[in-house]
Design a protein around this nucleic acid. Sequence first.
DNA 1: AACAAAAGCAACCGCGAGAAC
DNA 2: CGTTCTCGCGGTTGCTTTTGT
Length: 276
Amino acid sequence: MEFHERTCGSAIPPSEEEEMELRRGPWTVEEDVVLVNYIAVHGEGRWNSLARCAGLRRTGKSCRLRWLNYLRPDVRRGNITPEEQLLILELHSRWGNRWSKIAQHLPGRTDNEIKNYWRTRVQKHAKQLKCDVNSKQFKDVMRYLWIPRLVERIRAASGTSTVAPATSHQPEDPARVKLSSETSSAAGSSSSDSFGMHYFSPPPVSDGFPAASMQGGEDNTGAVTGPTDFTTARWFESLPSSSSGGYADLGLPDLDQGVWWDDLWSAENIWLQQQF
DNA sequence: AACAAAAGCAACCGCGAGAAC
DNA sequence: CGTTCTCGCGGTTGCTTTTGT
């Protein structure tokens, strides 16, 4: 990192009084414009001096956060796709709450967005099941119900028998096509590679999830362990499919719709009682 | 239609790591 | 080598929007 003071150039330096009154709370359109324009000319980084030089009465932190989470051109907004849900579940089982690390594998998604997704969607339903998100019970639900269901949906959508890596273009999703062409500037430094790397690295046969997942944490090295010897295709093929009387028989509603959850979880509760 | 509760999300905070001085 | 500064991460807060009554 370099910490040389940014010279302010033409920007009018705020007076001491102004500097004392740092703005907080929601950003205005005007502030956004200033920040975007400034970064377009000077680039990002050195956020504190950037904030000063741009004439923004914000902390460097605030500017950085606004840029990374909202203003960056490659930020993706909108619903988390089933592919992304699947990846989040998998990577979280691997690394725990390492949101930024997880975000590196979801181009255009921010750590904040993934964190919010986890807290609002996943943790909520762990609570509904009266169990901890890190508990074996909940992970079994994810492993045996949620993830297979997502995989099934992805397979159904793609019309193929294998899970297409998220980097493979899906014509119905222009955003993804766009993103995949922008991977060099996307959130992760190795986004195209890593995203396709082990799009969904399936659990070892022995105990389902990778070891870390059952301890509710991350591996000590923090390293991506890479695809297991149990290939995606093999694991995927082993899953029950709708045509073979799989989870579709539970009559689970659409995963993308909020309403499906309650039904799903009640169905899962029943199913789990039968299984465990 | 009005209100309350819940959900979703943007933004802030505290902390630790690492580089510069 | 200690201090200062910046950055980035994860956790949390609180405002806004949506949903339910």
